[in-house]
Simulated scan of single mutants.
Amino acid sequence: MSGRTAAVSSVVFVTASRDWWGAEESVLTLASAARGHVRQTLLCRSEPLAQRWATEVGPTVVLALDKRRVQRLPRLHDMLWLLRHSRLLLAHDVVVLENFHLVIPGSLVKLVQRRGQRMVLDLHDKISTPRASRVLRWFAPRMDTVISVSDYVAASLADLPVDSTTIYRPVRAPTQATRRANAGRVVGIVGRIDPEKNHPVVIEAVSAAPAHLELVIRGDRADSRTGYRQRVQDLCVRLLPDRHVIQARVDRARAMDGIDILVVANPQEAMGRTIVEAQLAGVVAVVPDQGGAAELVEHLETGMVYAAGDAHSLAAVLTRLSADAPLRAGLVERAYAVASRRHDPATYARAYLGALAG
Rank of each mutant, 00 (worst) to 15 (best):
A339P: 10
V283E: 11
A255E: 13
G282E: 09
R328H: 10
A355E: 08
N266C: 15
A339K: 02
A346F: 04
R238G: 03
I259A: 12
D324K: 03
L240R: 00
R252H: 06
L321H: 10
G354V: 01
C236E: 05
L296P: 11
S313G: 04
L240F: 00
A293T: 13
L353H: 03
P288W: 13
A253F: 15
L239W: 04
A339F: 06
A315G: 08
A308K: 07
A308I: 12
A255I: 08
A311H: 07
A346G: 11
V263C: 15
V283L: 13
E295T: 14
L314E: 08
R273P: 03
T347E: 04
Y352E: 00
A339Q: 13
H299P: 06
R254S: 15
V250L: 15
L235F: 03
Y306T: 06
A346E: 12
D310L: 07
R334N: 02
A329M: 05
R273F: 01
A323G: 03
L321P: 10
M256Y: 03
V263G: 13
D310A: 12
L331T: 09
L318M: 06
L235I: 08
I261M: 13
L321C: 05
V284Y: 01
A335H: 03
Y336G: 01
D289G: 14
V245E: 05
L318E: 05
A315L: 14
Y336I: 05
A307R: 13
R238L: 04
A311R: 05
V283S: 12
Y352H: 01
R342V: 09
C236M: 07
A253H: 13
Q233E: 14
M271V: 09
A294N: 01
R273N: 07
G258A: 12
S313Q: 11
A351E: 05
Q268F: 12
E298I: 11
Q233D: 14
I246D: 01
G291H: 10
L280G: 00
P345H: 09
D257L: 12
A337P: 00
R243H: 00
A311I: 10
